[in-house]
Structures are given as C-alpha cells and as structure tokens.
Write a protein that binds this DNA or RNA. Structure first.
Length: 848
RNA sequence: GGGCGCUUAGCUCAGCUGGCUAGAGCAUCUCGUUUACACCGAGAGGGUCGGGGGUUCGAAUCCCUCAGCGCCCACCA
C-alpha cells in the first residue's frame, strides 16, 4: 500500500464515517458498564456554528474514549424543533410572501413549518457527521416526536394533578414584534441612559399638586393611582384624596404603600398595574383596576383620540409635548436604568398582562438544590455549581405558555360557560370537546421549548417506559455551554428529579464560548462568524477538533485560533508520515507476532507510551481535554516521531514498530478519529475498525534500559548543542573510551548528532562533552577549542549557582524536617550530580 | 445591587488538590535540501507569573488588599 506524501483529509473522511456508521459501531454494545451522553439537540433548521463543533468534539472524545475502554456506550443524538427560533425564521419567509400567521389556522401553520424543518433537517445531521460525531443515529429523537409529546404530557399531567400548574393573569414579558410572551431569561436587560420625567398631578380636593417621577410617561393613561410611602411626611395629608391625570382628566386616588421608596425621585409614584410588574402587585393589594393602554401589537389603546394607534415611542414624544404645552412637566433628569429588550428582535419588551400557564417552581427548585448540596452532581468547573445554586434560590414561577403555533400544544381545554374551568385533555387535534354536555375550547398556546428540553435525558432514554435505552438513565455526562446553566441545566435537574426521582446526569461539564480570533463574541451582525464546515473543508475534521480543544479549559471563553487548527492539521500529517515510514519498513507482507522490546529505544518508547496513556486516563477522568490532547500530541510527535522512528531506522524490531504504530493510533483516535482510522484501514495486518479497538494495553519493559536510552538522548543533545555553538559548520568526530552505551548505539548517535564518525580511542583529545557525563570528546582543533572555553566557564558559573541554591535548601533545618522525604532525597541527588558536573567541567578547563 | 471569572513569554492560552532550572501552539532568530514528513528536522532567545501584604521550610498555585478587564443574574418608578 502506498500512501500519498501528505494526508488529504477530504479524500478519506466521508468514506471513513460511512464505514463506521454502516458497521454499527455507534450503537451501544450491550456489554460493560453503561456510559451515556445526550446531545443538546441542535436546531433542526439551522447550520452548526463553531460552538456546536466544540460541544460535539468534547463529547465525542469522551464517548470514543469510553467506548474503547469497554463501556456500553451511547451518544444519543437529537434535533430540536427550536420553537421560537424556527418560528422567527419561518415567519420571515411568510412575510416575504406577504402573508402572516393570522392567515392560517394552527394546523395549517404547524404542518407548513414541519415541512420547512423536514427539508432543512438533513443538513444539520450531515454537518454532525462531518465533525466525526459518533452518535447512535437510530436513536435520534426529534423534539416533536410522538414519544416526546407523550412524555411531556405525562409530566404536565403529573404537575397538574399535584397542583403545581396554575393559570394566571400576570405581567409577562411580551414581544410585540413576535406576539408571544417570553420567559425571564429570554429578556436581555440593558443598562442605558434615559430620562426621569417629573410630572405634576394636580390635587382635586386640596390645593396643590403631587409630582411623580417616571421613565415611561406614555403609560400615564393607564394610571389608576398615585402611591406614596405611608410614613412620608410630605404626602401624609394627601393619602385618600384624589388627583387628576394630566391630559386625560381622569381622577385617581392617592394611596399609601410600603413599596414606595421615599428617597427615589419625588417619593410619589404613578401606579399602572397593566404595564409594570411592581404596579401590578400594588394594584392587587389595593384592588385597583387594570387599564391596558398598550395593545399586544405595541400600539396605544384606551387613550385620548390623538394617541390611539401610535407606537410606544411616538406616543411618548407626543405625551411629553402635551405635558410641556399644558405645563405639567416639572423636571427632566438624566437617569441610568435597565430596560428589557427582546433578545431576538432587539426591540423593547413590553410588560403586559396576559393569561398564562405557570408552573410553581419552588418545590422543584428546592429538591434540585438539595440534590446539588448533597453532592449528587459534579460540576466542571466547580464554580458553576454556585451559579446554578444561586439561580435556583431565586427562581420565579415559570411561564410555560408561548403564543406561537409551532410547538407542543398545551393539552388543556376551557369550559365555554365557565372561563375558570379548565380540564387536562390530550386530544389537542380537536378544537372543541363536548364532555357531560359541556363544551370545552382548546387552548391555543404551546409549551415553552425548554419545558420539553428540560425533560430530554429521560425522554431520549425512554426511561419512564423502560425502553431499550433505559439502562442509560441517569446519563453519565451532560456537556453544554455555560450560557445554558439556567435555561437548560437547571430545568433538567428540576424536571428530572420530579419525574424520575433521580438526577438526570452525574457530571456536568460546561464549556465557554468560542470567540472570534480577536476575542470578540461571534455574531451574524458583526460578520465574524466562523463556519466549522469551512474549517473542515480547509484543514480537515481532525484538525478542527485538535485545534478547538487545545489549551481550552472548562467554563472559560476563548478565542478561535487558526494557528491551532493548523497545528492540528500538521499533527495529522505527522501521524500519516509515521505510518508511511512504518509501512515502508514493514512491507506489505508483514505478519505480526508478539512484540518484544530489544533495543534501549524499544524499552524507552514503551515507557513513553505508557506514561502518555496514564496521563490521558487521568486527564479524561477529570474532563481535562486540553491536557489529554497535549499528552497524546507530545508522546507521538516528540516520542514516537522524533526519537523512536529515528532509532527504528537502525534496527529491525518490526513487531515492536508495528505495535508502536498501533498503540499511537489508538491513543490518538479519540482526538483525531478520521486520520487514525484511515491509517488503520491501510494497515494490512489489522482487521476490523479502530473505533472498536480497546484502549491500549502496555507491554512490559525494562525501566533501566529505558533510562539508558535517556542517556543516549542526553549525549546526542550535548553533542548537538556543542557542535552548533562552535564556529563554522564543521562536522566532528566523536571519540570515546570504553563506553558500551556509545558503542552499542553508534549508528544512532552518529546520525542524530550529525557526526562524521564515532571512534574508540585510548588517548582522549579535543573537547570533552562534560555535561553528558560520558567519557566522550569531540575531535576539534586547538583553535576551536579555545573558542569554546568561555562557553564552559559560563556553564561552570551557572552550575555553581545551582549548587549554592541546593545547599541553601538542604541546610535549612525546616526544609529537611518538614518537606516530604522524597523531595529532600531528590535535592540531595541533584546536589551530588551538580558537584560531579563541576568536577568534570573543571577538569576540562584545566586541559585547555 | 448581588454573583462569577480573568490579568503568566511578542500573540492566544495551559499550569489539578502549594514542591525539581514556570510550559504549549504560533511568531522571532540561527543552522540544516539526513531516502516518513518543509504540513519537516536540529537549536536559540524571550516571563520580577497585574501591584502590595500575609500564611508556609517552600506560592504562579492558598488568604487579604488594591488596580484594570470581562461575563452572568436582578420587577425599584
């Protein structure tokens, strides 16, 4: 088999993936301890972004590693209908055609969006394949699959029966653009410079006026009271009297409520229950009307004629103009405050009153907190546990309803004759139900996507039904972005515990965001988005994987680095060329036998690979992907390529060479699956697939022999260093006296140190390689020798300094007494070595 | 208003529960066309680990403090 000179990923990757997939390698083996990872379902109609690539890579490394380690492994893929996200995209399409959602029935819209998503869905799955994701495709779950809906309804019913579901008029975060409510976490709060307007409300039954302060003058038409603090001396006498609303002329009472902060603004506040959450609460306490003056489409209603139909911003301008004209405006001051924005459209969120379905979250949150406090989950990084705990301690009831047709319908029906009579019923395809002579109308709202996503781990494993994958629940690892701690992780824990009595996963790994090369957040509007598929096309899937995980720690945002991707590509090429060398050396007819170490290099490389394996094991165990990758990278590049391949050129231990190659491929496989499998497939002596191989077993080796090879390396390094620091580019001969290490490794040393020759001599001459500790000399002329003198002197000075430091440490009684014995002994050893070195250097200098 | 994180070589970042001359990739400089690889090899330079204080035999690592940067959460008009 002849391999091309350089690895061309695109020639092999698709075929290799198909080979894996067709072989059934991604399916759980049914043998061994279960290990499961659930894919955070990517948006079915979208493209993967670079964050997905990182996400999938980290999971896939773990999954491949566990698979090779004999676990019964499953990586369950998903696709998300992404209710709101998809809806936004789809509605844009509708708008392009001059249509709107209101032109269609729910059923029509739903089926249209379904088709829309169906078309786009394959794309996302192809991209996941290009990333090398070893997911069990047969087990893929779409978030609108029957089993998802069944489970979600089951959970909703249970919550309903437990009295945790209620319907209520609340102030909700309303997107007037998309005409749906949001949950709290879908609202972006931005601090901005605004104005606090002081407006006079004249008293009716007394002389004078009360000046209120507001940031939203346009809502004054919805005012139903002015509130002051009950103990505020300035206003005490006015409580119970009335003021007249400017412009509208309506009369409203002055009330007292502790909620008012006497020190803020004027100490008097207008109460608008329909458009402010605090006012809503005040209104409830004082039994006030709720007067809606902003409609769900964001325009003014129930105002004097000249304002009706204006949008909020225009209305504000006109109201202020009127107030000014009629001399009600007392003061304008700059004021910095937070304003809620629609995270999708960037438009302000309107707090509006709407009937919604709510979930009483407290009991669920308490249970989740208990599980966290009991240490039932481990977090990577641990600090995120604190973030989650804080969220759970302050969480508000969850608004489950969304006013978008694309989603899981809320299975509830309302009695026509009694609006407060709601029943649970799963027949959501019926518009009306007749039960016991009563007529019920279907709820038109759908569930918040996160309500179903929050149940993902036990849905996809069919845990409640005891399905085939039920043994994989609770899942082993939940790996996702730090931005999803609240909206997803928290909810999975709460709903998982509620529905299954178990935490849904044991380990939570959170990765940070992948920023652009300038450490800026990637966004479409900035135009700095990096498409992972472009990277795959240019550098290969493995290169992207290696580059993405390199030097990346959990929970930490980090810039994307093309340099690292290139380094990854180069590594793949390095592996490729190691294989080329091995195949050339072994030939097509090589038949493997049990590998036995013979040379020093053989022993040494076994030890190196063993160390690397252990380092990878330790790192993966703690999800330190970057460290694991680094250990693998250096063992193969520095150990195998730079030293062992060189040594192998002078020897013919073919069985061990084949073993080194196979072991390298295994160790690298989780980090670079495509290239390793590609190579594996070209090796005539290997059967089957690398993906199914077990994690390498290291063979026995002699540590002393391995250490001897270390000395050869030291000698080579010394000879290289000395030779390069000498004037000219001459090649020198190495002379030595009775040194079997040199004698036995002559060829290797000569080639690696670029020596003219190596000769045994009786009488030494030339430049002694003092540092290496061997009786060896470079055969240089007297002139050259002289040039080298300062170099030696410099070393002597440095070595003396080292000795001084070591002596200082060892003469410290506390150090000797308190530091671990091993450490103290090491220091003593070092001191001896350094002292010996000084002797050699001095001898050498004396000769010069 | 709370909380979290960051500040280590020119750049981007590792450095776990404190312990050898603080590492990597890229960049820079020198040398090298050795029959696996120039997507290469051999070497070199480069860091008072943000400032200050403390604990300790020993701190980049733990504690306090100051400074700068970033993020998340939060219904004060």
């Amino acid at each position: 088999m002849n391999l091309a000179k350089a690895y061309e990923p695109n020639q092999y990757e698709p075929n290799i993936y198909a080979l894996w997939e067709q072989s059934g390698a991604f399916r759980p083996s049914g043998k061994g301890e279960p290990f499961s990872v659930v894919m955070p379902p990517p948006n079915a109609n979208g493209n993967l972004h670079i964050g997905h690539a990182l996400d999938m890579n980290l999971k896939d490394i773990t999954v491949r590693y566990k698979r090779m380690n004999g676990f019964d492994t499953v990586f369950i893929p998903g696709a998300d209908h992404a209710g709101f996200e998809t809806w936004v995209v789809y509605e844009k399409e509708l708008n392009k055609k001059g249509q709107s959602r209101f032109d269609f029935s729910r059923e029509q819209l739903y089926s249209q969006v379904w088709d829309f998503v169906e078309k786009a869905r394959g794309n996302m799955e192809l991209q996941l394949r290009a990333l090398g994701t070893s997911a069990s495709w047969e087990d893929l779950v779409f978030t609108l699959d029957e089993k998802v809906i069944t489970t979600v309804y089951g959970t909703f019913k249970k919550l309903w029966d437990d009295g945790l579901i209620y319907r209520g008029e609340r102030i909700v975060n309303y997107s007037t653009k998309y005409q749906t409510s949001y949950s709290d976490i879908e609202v972006d709060h931005k601090l901005e410079k605004g104005t606090l307007w002081h407006i006079a409300y004249p008293l009716i039954d007394k002389i004078g006026e009360i000046v209120i302060a507001t940031t939203r003058p346009e809502t004054l038409f919805g005012d139903v009271a002015v509130a002051v603090h009950p103990e505020d001396e300035r206003y005490k006498d006015f409580i119970g009297s009335h003021v007249v609303l400017p412009i509208s002329g309506r009369e409203i009472p002055v009330i007292a409520d502790e909620y008012v902060d006497r020190d803020f603004g004027t100490g008097a506040v207008k109460i608008t229950p329909a458009h402010d959450p605090n006012d809503f609460e005040v209104g409830k306490r004082h039994n006030l009307d709720r007067l809606q003056v902003i409609d769900f489409d964001g325009t003014m209603i129930n105002t004097p004629d000249q304002f009706i139909g204006l949008d909020v911003a225009e209305a504000r301008k006109k109201v202020l103009a009127s107030l000014k004209a009629e001399e009600y405006l007392r003061k304008e001051e700059d004021y910095e405050h937070t304003v809620g924005y629609d995270y999708k459209s960037g438009l302000p969120i309107q707090p509006l009153i709407k009937e919604q379905w709510f979930l009483k979250i407290e009991p669920l949150a308490k249970r989740a907190l208990k599980a966290i406090n009991n240490g039932e989950l481990s977090f990577y990084p641990p600090s995120k546990q604190h973030v989650l705990r804080q969220y759970l301690e302050n969480v508000h009831d969850w608004n489950l309803s969304r006013q978008i047709p694309w989603g899981i319908p809320i299975p509830a029906f309302q009695n026509e004759a009694d609006p407060d009579d709601w029943i649970f019923d799963e027949r959501v395809d019926e518009k009306t139900l007749k039960i016991d002579g009563k007529t019920y109308h279907r709820e038109e709202d759908t569930f918040d996507t996160w309500f179903s996503s929050g149940q993902w781990p036990f849905i996809v494993t069919d845990y409640l039904d005891g399905g085939e994958l039920a043994r994989f629940y609770p899942t082993s690892l939940m790996e996702t972005g730090t931005d999803l701690v609240d909206r997803w992780i928290a909810r999975m824990i709460m709903l998982g515990l509620y529905a299954t009595d178990k935490v849904p996963f044991k380990d939570v790994y959170l990765h940070g965001m992948v920023l652009d090369e300038n450490s800026q957040k990637m966004s479409k509007s900035k135009g700095n988005v990096i498409n992972p598929m472009d990277s795959v096309a240019e550098y290969g899937s493995d290169a992207l994987r290696l580059g993405l995980i390199a030097s990346r720690s959990p929970g930490q945002h980090q810039a994307f680095s093309t340099d690292r991707i290139i380094a990854g590509r180069n590594f793949c090429n390095k592996l490729w060329n190691i294989a080329r060398f091995a195949e050339h050396k072994l030939g097509d007819n090589y038949q493997p036998k049990t590998p036995q170490p013979q040379s020093l290099a053989d022993h040494w490389i076994i030890g190196e690979l063993d160390n690397a394996k252990q380092a990878i094991d330790r790192a993966i165990d703690k999800y330190r992907f970057a460290e694991a990758g680094d250990s693998m990278y250096h063992a193969i590049w520095d150990g195998v390529a730079d030293w062992y391949i060189e040594a192998a050129k002078d020897q013919d231990n073919l069985d061990l060479l084949a073993w080194v190659l196979n072991t390298s491929l295994k160790l690298a496989h989780p980090f670079a699956p495509f290239v390793t499998e590609t190579i594996w497939q070209t090796l005539p002596w290997n059967d089957g697939l690398l993906i199914n191989e077990s994690w390498p077993e290291v063979i026995n080796y002699d540590e002393i022999a391995a250490g001897e090879f270390g000395r050869v390396q030291q000698l080579v390094a010394e000879a290289r260093f000395v030779a390069i620091s000498l004037p000219g580019n001459e090649k020198y001969s190495l002379l030595y006296q009775q040194d079997s290490l040199i004698e036995d490794n002559k060829d290797l040393i000569q080639r690696l140190a670029k020596l003219k020759s190596i000769e045994a001599v009786d009488q030494a001459r030339g430049l002694r390689l003092a540092v290496s500790g061997r009786e060896a000399w470079l055969d240089v002329s007297a002139d050259t020798l002289d040039e080298h003198k300062t170099n030696l002197e410099q070393r002597l000075v440095e070595t003396h300094a080292d000795i001084k430091a070591l002596e200082g440490r060892l003469s410290n009684e506390n150090y000797v007494a308190k530091a671990p014995e091993k450490l103290v002994n090491e220091s003593r050893e070092q001191l001896k070595e350094k002292q010996a070195l000084v002797e050699r250097l001095e001898q050498e200098l004396a000769v010069l």
